[in-house]
Nucleic acid binder design. Structure first.
Lengths: 126, 126
DNA sequence: CAACTAATGCAATATTGTTGCAAATATAAT
DNA sequence: ATTATATTTGCAACAATATTGCATTAGTTG
């Protein structure tokens, strides 16, 4: 694995995601960073952070890619089998770190990663 | 609910999806239809078909939106709680209609739809 | 067949994601 | 601290995907 560096952009982007209660999309991060760095840099840093396991991805049923840092990220035993909830009203996506679905795949399928996203109305919008 | 019409485009697109063993993206459908109708029409028809419950969506971890028709579609008791498998090698997405995950959401969350997509290597590519 | 309205095509535009390359910068070695 | 190096960044260009407005076409109903 290629060595990766700790740059200002990377730190700032990781902090933005870690400090957020909700999962963030590329464009949301871009806005929060207020033109601190280029759009392209954000795409590349996000890819790196995912590779390094510091954050994880979740995709809504609309195809919007969101990024989040959860507690199991950056631990040895780190997996992201938990569910994400996407509110149809306020469009926020949150990690439900305690909700891990149980399923039974035929063992010919080699599963590398999962994406569990539920859509509906969150408690705040009800 | 607004009334919807049975047009040639709608029929052709639905048949394309129904006849396919794998879930199809907008661009794949566009290719299969070989310029029978406009790209925009396909977008609109897909939305309508989803609204009417004749097909359902699945989104890969890369944010690619795929469409599929399953057996429970178009039945009264129709739900899409099954898992989709996305192969990282051949990039095909299939419905695992028999694999329905069990999970336990806090009941303050009103769940309308689910998106379960696993990524990995399918039996053919192993 | 006439009237009504949904659906389509087209053009324009918006949004999202990718690539190549030169310049900048983090890291390790001296 | 200075230098050597390879990663990272910004910029520009491009590609892919999705959306909107409006005039025209074509289902559907009576």
């Amino acid at each position: 694995m290629k060595k990766t560096r700790n740059t200002v952009a990377k730190t700032k982007i990781l902090n933005t995601i870690s400090d957020s209660k909700i999962a963030l999309s590329h464009s949301e991060i871009h806005e929060l960073l207020d033109d601190f760095c280029d759009r392209v840099t954000i795409y590349r840093v996000l890819d790196r952070l995912v590779d390094e396991g510091l954050i994880h991805k979740a995709v809504t049923i609309e195809g919007v890619v969101k990024y989040a840092a959860c507690h199991t990220c950056s631990t040895d035993e780190h997996h992201h089998n938990h569910i994400h909830f996407s509110c149809e009203q306020c469009h926020t996506v949150i990690c439900m770190e305690n909700v891990e679905p149980v399923f039974n795949m035929p063992k010919q399928y080699k599963v590398h990663s999962v994406n569990f996203t539920l859509s509906g109305i969150c408690p705040q919008c009800s």
